[in-house]
Each structure stands twice: as C-alpha cells, then as structure tokens.
Amino acid sequence: MKILKPVIAILIGYALLKYGIPLIGSKMHPGTWPVVPTSVMKMYMFFVVAAFLLIFTRSEEGYNDIIGPIADIYANPSKKVAMMALSVIVGGVGAFVAYQYVKPTFEPPVELRSIHPAPPSTVKAFNKSFSLQTLKNPYRVEDKAELEKNTLEGGVVFFKNCFFCHGDRLLGKGPFAAGFNPLPANFVDVGTIAQLTESFVFWRISTGGPGLPSEGAPWISAMPVWHTLLSEEEVWKAILFLYDYTGHHPRVTSEGGEE
C-alpha cells in the first residue's frame, strides 16, 4: 500500500491550498474567507500532482510502488472486477471533469480586468496634458510644516469626497462600497497605492473609471472623473493624505526601472 504515500502527499498539498491559504487570509482580513481562485487552483494542483509523482518515482523502488499495483490489476486476469472498477472510476472522473467544464452555469463571466492597467504616456485633465513619466506631486515639499498643512488639507478633500466609497479607514469599505463592482480600492493593502507612483494615482483619480483603458473592462469602475469636480491642487493634496494616512510611500520611478 505504498501507493498511498504520494496520494497522501498530494492530498496534504491540496488541503494546504484549499484551507490553509484562506485561513491565513482570514486572520489578515477578518470576516472574509479568501479562497484560492479556481483558475489558480487548477494550475497549482497540476504542478503539485506532477511534482509529487516525480519525487516518488525518482528511484526504481518508488516507481514500482506506484506502477506495480496498477500494472498488477491490469495484468492479472483474476482481478478482472478490480480492473473494471478502476476503468469505470478513471473514466467517470474524466467525464465529471469534462461535464464541469461544459455545463451551463449562472455565474457571471469571470473577472478579467487588470487592476493596474498600463497607464498612457500622457493624460488630459484640467484642460492640460500631463506626461505621467515626469509628473511629480508639486505639493510634496521639503518643508515639513508646509507638507503637514498640505496633507491636512488633503484629508479634508478626502473626507468631503472620497470617504463615501473608500471609507474612513481607507480600506475601501465606505458606506456606499457594497454597491460597486469592482469594489473601491483598499489603500491600506500593499497591492494598491503602495506599489504605484503618485503620477499613476493622479491619473486614476483625475480621469476615474471612464479614463480606464480597455484592459480595465468589462466592469468599468464607478470612480468619478474627478478633474471635473476637484481642482488639480485638491487632487494632489488628497494623494498626499492617502500616503500619509496609510503609511505607504509612493513608488519612485528609477531610470528605466520596470516593476
């Protein structure tokens, strides 16, 4: 029954991915159960199975332990019933997988939108053109007192305009948040403003959902086109506030730096 060894290893791997990752995630974001999406899970499991099969078949003994029992069933006329049963099980699993693929579902199409689509090189807002590669926040000044004042003013802008969706703790859980798909961005998360330049954030705020390129489809964000509602200064100051409040640092583009 040594054939059970790789099976158990694979099952442990499956359990870790299926329950371990959501468990860790639920500790980080209480109240959620962040499962591994099916699309990723399939890829994970393919390689978990492949890797453990390779590990266990590296030596002749290991190989025979796995192949032996199967070969025995198929080669031994006295185990005809077992052979039939195994064939039915294998065929059945195949049929089940195929059925799962083709059966009609009521799920909406999967989310395909790119969260951080490639920005254009220039952006038109406030009746001007901005080059996103060189754009800097003019209110991020050296003077500490001045910076603090700007940031405070940005906070006022945030709570007058942005708070309703992005929430008082900037977690993307404001009073209106539940109504949107995509959900409002969570600025505290390391995956959002923490890895973006200020010019990118400026672009996203100024032109809002309608300014997203086609990768942002199909559910275009409900973010308003703020350059028609706020002044340039207010947008920049609100950006200062976002970084200050979350403790993140805006990404600084280095020369030729990717990522």
């Binding site: 959620t32 962040p34 591994v36 999967v110 989310e111 939108r113 959900l183 998360d189």
Partner: peptide
Amino acid sequence: TLIMSAGELAQIGDAHHPVLG
C-alpha cells in the same frame, strides 16, 4: 491579476487577494 468568479470575489472580499497578492 487573479481571475476570479463573482462568488470568489465576494468570499475574498477584495479585488486583491490578501495572501496570493
């Protein structure tokens, strides 16, 4: 960018996965 269905999105509660992100 993770591909997730609407149901998974609701379970995760965020467009960004806290662990896989």
